[in-house]
Structures are given as structure tokens and as C-alpha cells.
Design a protein around this nucleic acid. Sequence first.
DNA 1: TTGACAGTTTGGAACGTTCCAATTATTGGA
DNA 2: TCCAATAATTGGAACGTTCCAAACTGTCAA
Lengths: 347, 347
Amino acid sequence: MKQPKVTVVDVARAAGVSKSTVSLVLQGSSLVNEATRARVGAVIRELGYVYNRSAANLRQSKSKIVGIVVNDLTNSFFAELAVGMDMVVQSAGYIQFMANSAENADRQAEVIASMREHGMAGLILSPARGTTAADLRPLVDSGIPVVLVARNVPGLKVSSVVSDGHAGAAAAVQHLIDLGHRRIAFLGGFNDTAVFDERMRGYRDAMHEAGLNGSDELVFSSAPSRAGGVAAVERLLSTADRPTAALCFNDAVAFGACDGLRSARIEPGVDFGVIGFDDVIEAKTAVPALTTVSVDPQGMGRRAAQLLLKQINSGDFEHEALVASVRLVVRESCGAAQRMKREAVTA
Amino acid sequence: MKQPKVTVVDVARAAGVSKSTVSLVLQGSSLVNEATRARVGAVIRELGYVYNRSAANLRQSKSKIVGIVVNDLTNSFFAELAVGMDMVVQSAGYIQFMANSAENADRQAEVIASMREHGMAGLILSPARGTTAADLRPLVDSGIPVVLVARNVPGLKVSSVVSDGHAGAAAAVQHLIDLGHRRIAFLGGFNDTAVFDERMRGYRDAMHEAGLNGSDELVFSSAPSRAGGVAAVERLLSTADRPTAALCFNDAVAFGACDGLRSARIEPGVDFGVIGFDDVIEAKTAVPALTTVSVDPQGMGRRAAQLLLKQINSGDFEHEALVASVRLVVRESCGAAQRMKREAVTA
DNA sequence: TTGACAGTTTGGAACGTTCCAATTATTGGA
DNA sequence: TCCAATAATTGGAACGTTCCAAACTGTCAA
């Protein structure tokens, strides 16, 4: 079955033209006669010719490949992010190397190196935990555009698209305060990441502004996963002066928190307010529906990809830092619905 | 910042050897003298030389690239599948083009064509709905190994890795029967897919074997999503002779079914038995924990990737059809836990 | 001293494309 | 009829690598 591979020269011979003409046809040049174009096109289809891009960009050294490296494809937030990038990359006629670093910086370095050898035109990176500016410096210095997404790498001057964690966290806390909560916890996440820092500062600032205590005894860090959420809320429940609501590092943690609360016969959204972060797809349909800070990961992915393509095409080295705005989506888990019901009865 | 790009010739000049020697060093050939190897290695690091794989495999025409096309990365089952493939592909020193077809066959065709132009050595495809054998024939005929995963394409002779939907569905139904259910529904999924067919046959066969009615009035098809599950269970609840349990097409549908049941004040796992399919990550931690047929998507992904790499390396055209075995994971949503409690009380 | 041999190194052709400069064919105006 | 201009086509060099056959070095036995 193995075809002996047909090249532009074979096509040329079969169509009775030179390889240069075939090349012109391939690039849709307006220089070539309509009849010739048609004839060559027919031969191409007939012979089953497949364009060899490697050979092409060996000559012109500008590939239509971008690299996408994501820290955890298993997390639906990042999966959505990837899907968003995929959409715009694909529509722009590019194709992507895509790899999952699984939060492993070494593996991340390996795949980036490999992508570089294969001639990628640019990279979108959602960096693994522990990625340093030094890891990426050689790549950046070589003039390949890099866009960081979702997480930043301190000290690295490249473009980035991140969500406004500070504003989101602050809005969420404010909402809980409006609902009457006074002891509000911060649940989940590792405190060595920039994202954690930012959301945490939003939480603290909002607490302070309302004259409330946002001290360390109210923060329960944990793995940013569902299991981590369960663990964190268990610790929370065993404290003396128990909080009545919590802002969670992300939705996974929030779901875990709900699970943990329920195991303790505390109904999330009724007896305890829970707010997540990210607005993962499941947030809307979960029971109770999760009040959360929506960050539109697909949109972020799209913007990141657009930014990268812009840099690739313009060849400029202006760095842009996009902050995706964020919006609190009030559903059931924070208790807002309950309160409205109470108020209706009182009235 | 833009480096003028250093090639093997530059390295050769700087190290005082010929480009052939540098090439030999690059390939780790044993022909080259230890001292020379060291010197060349040093120069490579010093100049920041980056190997150009496109150029290389232009000459040797065997790339280290595989293509992965998945129908819906947003669904965590397929995301896990992708992660599994990523693992083995990466460890084998390959890199992957990865794209999301979003169930769109045209888009799928486009990305596959693009990957082909970029010189992929093989393809793993989780086909979009509506993919026909004809769509893939040219690729297959050209001698590029293809492995189908999760779904089959009727009439196409290539290797595949699919889960044993028949056995899984039958086991699930048998379990519900053992728990005392007699009217058991089949919920969700589109009836135009091979996967649906297979699970459906497992359901029917198990019902018949037990002398039960598995007729059409008990199957409620819908989109294979959480929302679809909600819709399907609503239809189910409005029927006259209401079933007491349901096997769902997949976990997403099962979660939706639970949501729908709860909205109707029916507690899944207590008043109604629900079983899912796939054992998505969230199944374990959901409330109630989902009884489901576990298919280990990561494992399937790994096996698919191994199969593809084997075919690439051996160049053979033996087609293997792997059926991933499947196992019922009994948790809470089917009511088994409840029954055990009852029995304990009775005893 | 020569030849055989192993251990190293090397020049140049080849891979499939693009691009440039040059060539040929066609047209229209003077 | 001839020239200029335009339209279409073309050969060959170049891109960065690998591979082959050939060449060079040194060692050792004859």
C-alpha cells in the first residue's frame, strides 16, 4: 500500500509544466494562467499529491505551527482554555503541537525543546508550577513569541493573558458580606503561586475594607482539587469559631467543599455559603448550582491565541499584558436564593 | 533579539570539523572520537544551536510526530484519553499535533490534512460523529498507520481500541436486577452511533436474559451531556408506568439524571437507581457517588498510543482491535448501599 | 617497507520546496 | 513591421540536514 510519495516534480511532469509553475499554483499566485492552474489542480488530485510543509518552510523559514503547553489538561478549566486556543489557531490555518506538562517543569522543558526543534512559530504556555524565568529565557531570546496564559512567570517579560483574580475575589467576598456573613474563610490552593496570591489579596482587601478580620486562621490552603476541597473544609469545620461562608480557590475546591459539608450534614447554600472561582462547565448544573467567579476560559484561550498570532505576523516585540475581566455569577451555593425566599416570606 | 539562526555548518566551523562530523555527533554515533564529541558538544551549547528536525526528516523521511484528533476535549472522558496518549507519546520521544474536532467532521478532515502535510508518522483518532470510512481512506491507503480510539468507523480496516460497551451495560443492568429492580430504563445518547448501539445491545440482552421487558418505551435518548440527562429524565418521570432505575449512556447523562430527579424531589440512590458509564473523575466524589462502568480512559489512551507507536516502528499492517475490559464500580447512586443498610436492619 | 585494517573524518549529492532572474509567448500601439 | 510592455513560464540555487563513498591517520603483522 505504501505509495512511493509524489512530489511537485512528479506533478509537474504529469501536467507538462515546470516545478516552478506547480509551486506557483500551490501558493495560489495570480501569475499563472487559468487553464494551467486548472490542469495542474486536476493532476494534483489525480495523483494524490500531498504538500510537504517541512520542505517548504525549510526554504522560507516561517512555519504555520504553534506550540501549546498546558499544565493540566485533566482540569476542565485548562481543557476549555485549550479548546479556545484550538479554535482560533485552527481557523487561522495554523496547526498546534499540544502537550500536557502535568505540572512537571522538567517535562515542560523537554516538550518545549522538542517543539522548538520542530520549528514552531510561537508558543502559548500555561506554565507548570515552579516554572522560572530562566527556564524560558533562551526561547524568548531566540525571538520566538511567547504568550503566557492563566498564570504568570515572575520576572519574565512576555505577553500574558490572565484573569483578574483580585477583582473577582473581592467581588465574591463583598457579595457574601452583603448576604450578612461576617466570618468568611478562604479555602484551598497552594500559597506558592501567583494566582493564589492575587485571589488571596482580593479576599484580604475586601475583608479589610469592610472592617472584618481576614487573618490567617481563616485561610485553609490545600491542593486545588476536589479532594483538596474536602480536606480543607474538614479542617475548617473542626475550628472553634466556625466560619459561616467560604470563598474557594477554584471550582474544584468548591465542589469538594460542598461534598465535605454534606458529609457533615451541613447543606451548602442553606447552612453555609460557598463561592467558587472559574465557572467551570459543571458549575451551572451542579446541585446546588455553584455561585462562582466566571472567567470564561475559552475566551481567555481565544484571546491568548489571537495575541500570539498577532505577534507572529507582525514580528513585533511589544509585550501586552491582558487582564481578562471577571464577573460574579450568583447561583445557589452562596445562599442568595435562600435569602430571597426568606425575604419574600417576611414581606 | 532575533538570532541569525545557527546551523550545523556554523557549529562545524567553530569546532574545526566538518558538518558531517557534527551530524554524527548529533545522532550519537559511535564512530566519532570521544574528544571530538566533547568539543562539538561544547560548541553546540555555546552557540545555542537548535536542531532542525524538518530539515532532517526531509532527508530521512521518517518524522517523530504523531497526530491526535479528539472529538470533544471539553468532555473529561476524552481529556483523560488525550492525557494518556500524551504520556506515552512524549516518553517515546515523539511529539504530537493535537486538535479538537468538536464533533465536526469537516473540521476533522481539515486538521488531518494539515497534519499530513506537516509529515506526521501516524494518527490516533477519536472520530467525530458522522465520520465515514471514505473520509479516512486516502490517509490509510497512503500507508500512514491509524488507530481509532473510543469509537469505531464502520467499514474501515484499521486498528482500534474501544471499551467493551456490551459487557459493561449488561453487567450494570444485571446489578440493578439483583437489587430488585424490574422496570429499568436506558437514558441518553444518540442512537446513530456505534457506541450507543453496543451499550444498548448490552442493556437489551441483559433484560431479555432476565425475562424482562427492554422495549423502546424504556429508552429515552438525548444529547450525551449533563443537560441531555436532565431532559431525558424529565421525559422518563412523565411516563405512566414509571421505571425505578436507569442505566445511563455515560456519566454526564447520569449526573444530569440525578439533577433532574432531585428537582422532582426524588433522591437518586434512595428512591431511584442510577448507573453511569465511563467512570469520569468526578464520579467518585459526586454526591451521591456514582455507580458506573469504569473504562479507564487514560489506560485506553495509553494503549492506543502504544499500538500506534508499535505500528510506526515495525511498519507492519496487521490490524489489531483491542477491546478494553470494563468493570462495574458500585458506589451509592444505584442504591446498593441503601439496600445493605435495610438488610442489616432486617437481620 | 609494505599492506591490511580499524578508527575517524570528510566532501558532495540528495531530500522537496521557494525564490530569483531570466526566458519565452502574447498583445497592442506606433 | 517592429518595439515595448505585459503575461506566463522556467531553470537553478538555496534552505539544513543525512548518507554514501572515499580519504586520511595510525598501528601492527608480514
